[in-house]
Write a protein that binds this DNA or RNA. Structure first.
Lengths: 211, 211
DNA sequence: AAACCTCGTTTCCAATAGTGAACAAGGACA
DNA sequence: TGTCCTTGTTCACTATTGGAAACGAGGTTT
């Protein structure tokens, strides 16, 4: 009768991982979305190609839709599955944090070739890592190997002039105010080409958990 | 016959969003996972409570599993749905891209209060959005409402002096070289406090799919 | 090589999903 | 009030899924 008629299977499921099967009020969710858009069952039927009756039963948890039906739903409603499944939108969105760094008050990390100044290091869980770098290197030869890390990097020259060496491209000259965005898994290295050391601002994405 | 028998529905689907229905080789994916763990169909049957035969048919795209079956699959296999759906785990790690923007050659987006210059707009799929902004506003009152968007934002003052108003904090003054990192879902607004318009560099995280 | 496993596929049937039509239950309109 | 019209639910029926058992292809043991 119900959509979750499991009879004997329930026993076997016990061998599985989660003892309690998430109810996953899918129907409820669909209805929510439908009403939020002020659509009637007929409208959704048009959009999804599913019968009005079918939609009604899905919304009332009277049937467990076929996966192909779910597909029709998701691209009929113009949403994606995660959206359909995350029942509440309780995104527990961390918000309201902030972290100020006054000029010259970042955390210093000197290396032979660069002098890094980490910029917002009070904040622990952040998606970007900003830092100011004084480029000491004057020749590509000073690097023993490519600098390389997961994610992406944005870089803007604040002072002076640099030359950006990358693994797959010809070297590039950048002056004060120029900026570049690149995949940082591609080997890269910076040298100053101006008299004084150049200064650049970089922002890297954090190695995230999506992998 | 096949799992993707759509007949007339295809027409109506045209009214929807995506014209091409993602094949979504679900069966293929399941098999992949099964083999990766060196499980036999019987093993998976035990874990999921689905019959061997059913699993076989699912793997060979001979049937479109019921949503309840999919549920049994995901918690039987100990994975989550996104994982099941992202077809290849080869994240096709994009790498080797780059996008140079010379000073003053970004894409201009003027507003009453700000003058934005998008910085690396050639690149489509990127995790950060960098832009330079000339702050025209001189008073908080010029904003009709908080600026607010998902994700996080990093900001450094390049020229002049600004005052940063945020929803949950007292206003903050920032001078040339100062920087700040904050959750951009928190309402925020910038005004110039120097004689000339201030210039700031911002980098936002993209509204990602991790939700 | 015959008997016996194990694994994946296929077959057949019962259970259930999906459909169109019929059915209330409101609203609008005359 | 009575006649539409629209909306969501229920019904009767067909199409499809899901399960137990049969099957066929290797592999192992004897």
């Amino acid at each position: 009768m119900t959509a979750t008629t499991d009879q004997g299977a329930a026993l076997r499921i016990a061998a599985g991982r989660k003892p309690f099967v998430e109810p996953l009020r899918l129907g409820e969710r669909v209805k929510e979305i439908r009403l939020a858009n002020q659509w009637t069952l007929e409208d959704v039927s048009q959009r999804t190609g599913l019968a009005r009756s079918t939609l009604s039963k899905i919304e009332n948890d009277q049937i467990s839709p076929t996966f192909s039906a779910v597909q029709k739903l998701i691209d009929g409603l113009g949403i994606d599955l995660p959206q359909l499944l995350s029942p509440p939108k309780v995104q527990t969105r961390t918000m309201g944090r902030r972290d100020l760094t006054r000029r010259g008050h970042g955390e210093l990390h000197p290396t032979p070739t660069y002098e890094h100044e980490l910029l917002s290091c009070e904040l622990a869980q952040k998606r970007m890592i900003p830092f100011k770098t004084i480029v000491r290197a004057r020749a590509f030869e000073e690097f023993t190997e490519w600098v390389r890390h997961d994610g992406e990097e944005f870089l803007m020259v604040l002072e002076g002039e640099i030359r950006l060496y990358t693994e797959y491209y010809e070297p590039l000259s950048l002056s004060d105010g120029d900026s570049i965005y690149f995949d940082s898994a591609m080997g890269h290295a910076l040298v100053s080409t101006s008299e004084a050391d150049a200064v650049v601002l970089s922002v890297c994405t954090r190695g995230d958990g999506t992998s």
